[in-house]
Design a protein around this nucleic acid. Sequence first.
DNA 1: GTAATCACG
DNA 2: ACGTACGTGATTACT
Length: 885
Amino acid sequence: MEKKIVLIDGHSILNRAFYGLPDLTNSEGLHTNAVLGFLNIMFKILDEEKPEYLTVAFDLNKPTFRHEMFQEYKGTRKSMPEELREQVPIMKEVLKAMGVNIVEKAGFEADDVLGTIAKTCEKEGYEVSLVSGDRDLLQLATDKIKIRIPKTKMSGTEVENYNTADVIEKYGVTPKQFIDLKGLMGDTSDNIPGVPGIGEKTATKIISQYDSIENAYEHVEEITPNKAREALKNHYDLAVLSKTLATIKTDCHIDFHISQAEIKNLTNEEAFVYFKKLEFKNLISRFQVDVSHNEGVEKLFKIITDFVEAENVFNKLLSQKTDDQSVVVGLQLIRENSTILGISLTFSEKDIYFIKVEGLISAAYLQDKVKNIVDHNYLIATNDLKSQLDFILATEKDPIADLGIGAYLLNPLKSTYHYDDIARDFLNLIIPNESELFGKISLIKAMDGSPEEFKNFCCYQGYVNYLGYDKLMKALKDTNMEQLFREIEMPLVFALFDMEQRGIGVNEGELKAYSERLGVKIAQLEKEIYELAGEEFNISSPKQLGVILFEKLRLPFGKKTKTGYSTSADILEKLVIEHPIVSFILEYRQLTKLKSTYADGLTAFISEDKRIHGKFHQTIAATGRISSTDPNLQNIPIRMELGRAIRKAFIPKEGYIFVDADYSQIELRVLAHMSGDEKLIAAYKEAQDIHRITASQVFHTPLEEVTPLQRSNAKAVNFGIVYGISSFGLGQDLNISRKEAESYINKYFETYPSVKNFLDELVAQGKKDGYVTTIFGRRRPIPELTSSNFMQRSFGERVAMNSPIQGTAADIIKIAMIRVNRKLKELNYRSRLILQIHDELLIEAHEEEKEQVMAILKEEMQNAAILSIPLEVDVNIGSNWYEAK
DNA sequence: GTAATCACG
DNA sequence: ACGTACGTGATTACT
């Protein structure tokens, strides 16, 4: 059996993959579809063939290249889209990491290189598989050279295979004759002219009969039809030239030795780094994640279960001097739910421990030791501090850093910032994460089941914290975000922890009564809807609802989604006049939403203490906002009265009241400040009603004469500006034409030219740097700005305009939260900050402190940032959240 | 697991 | 010609 070599036409396959897969990106916004598709094809072929050798050929310095898609158009060469261009170097790096032989030779076409290598290998007795998306290569097919053309189909990748016989069967000519065939018929995409007037059919007939162009010319008088005969007579030179152009060279001088093409370990550690970075989750399963990775470090990992040894470890650490805070301690609490399993502790390259709760080593003992370390001013490096603050009894005054938050500031677009993410992104270290190690098995089970993996899992966390600290702090310094990190994000961790601990009081009985009332009403609506529809169906299924409304009742459908008719509220609202069923459906939707998400949903979160302890997340939103889950307390209804009533169920504890404060139009004020627009600043300095004064200035109408319509239009434009204005979006919102929306926007920009200038500047900055920043230096990367796709690029532009505004507002309220929380504690007040809703803070205030609390809230919120216009804050009190707002 | 819908700022 | 407003999270249906 001959040995096998697989040759891949690099650009051709990359191109195929790019157009065959949807536009995938990793969490950093890097486009990855072409690379993924290439690797999928490559692995499929390798799995089938199990070759000994592999080589990929790329063209060099070729700014454009062909693709079948374009041939169908004009045969013009279209330049490579940016999304594909940026994947070419990545592809090469990935292949290099896998140890794959890459051939790229200046001055040669990939076809010629592949042809040469294929023939050379054939001569030396190897079996050759030549993988390309390009049918030109069929001329190289022999019994030993198989041309393989992958096709991306619904069911996955299928490959067409061509040896000599297959070419003859499919095209009626031999591979060698294929060149002559092309010489006659030409190939527009390859700039091969061919003979005018001779197409595929005629060319095939002639070549199969006469074997070659030259021979056909000798018998030219016999050729039929007449048209073809004359064409060949008149254009013989062109035919010969075309044949030369179509011939793939097989005798290039390239230094190729089969030994270079030997397949090494493709799934090695270096490649693993790339696969992780590109987030190829499926392909990663090809790598056996075994614990022998990073064997060197893992040998140093120690698990401590003996009390005396634990004492020795702590004593060793405590004997190191900390006057200058130079000793970094990587620390991570390891626990499952409420069970504390131990602590991961690293304080030098060699002191890497997991100290396990066992025997005399109790959780309380460890907590005490950790407190001792904190009190001695060691520099603590940990990850997700908020989740550990019930154990690590630190305060915001202590020198402690949360690496997850640091990594979030450096790239807020990622989805997780776990120890393996930090290790990969900052230490170039690939280590298995929890699910790779244990799957769905619980930590407690893994502790006994796979002790070695468990030890490594635990030790790595402290180790990564220890090593990552310097790297992250340097990166934050280099990006001017050190102050943001130290003075806003880290102190905020403590404020959010406090809020989660405190929770908010809920009247469970009221919530349940509310749910029952809704239930009754929903049942009535259901009945009426079924009656009007003439049948029963699932009203909550957009699919079934669409059939009823748009097919059975024949209502005009406004919009379609990918899967069917759109039944969204804004579409249905336009249909209210068409049929009485529509308003019932809208009401049904509203009530079921209130019941399931709020009345019943919230009830499920009430804990023993009759309070809801939601979670606040600091590393989710790309703009720097906080987010809320389990439950989401930042989207409790307020706009509609019926929903707003839910807020009556949120109550302060006995002896307390709610004090609620919210910023008035903070984002517009931030915009006025950041843009420095004189007229806008002047307007907002005096304005009671910002939208009204905007309307007055934009529509050149005296303030008193502004109509309600003008005001609401101005309001919509103001929102639009903050969202990153587009005439389409504004038109959609106001239900007016794009043209009209455009004229509103133009009027706005004429009135406030510096705003226009500012927004343009943000887009330009985003394009130049790849990111935009808030006043406090927070960054938002915008990879979409380089996209060649209009939609994506436009999105990037809106993000560039919106993020600095939304982000600065987020920074400001974070500062206010920290100061308010701090002040209430300093003054030993019983009042507590319990919620943040983006521009609003809610305090559960002791009745005796309410006046002071109102003053503190207003003061700290207004002065959290000093802008060129004052920040206005509205403060209200109430015996429940409904009243306080 | 994704799409559609809708709640908030 | 293209076809979306910015930022989130929860529920439901359905593959």
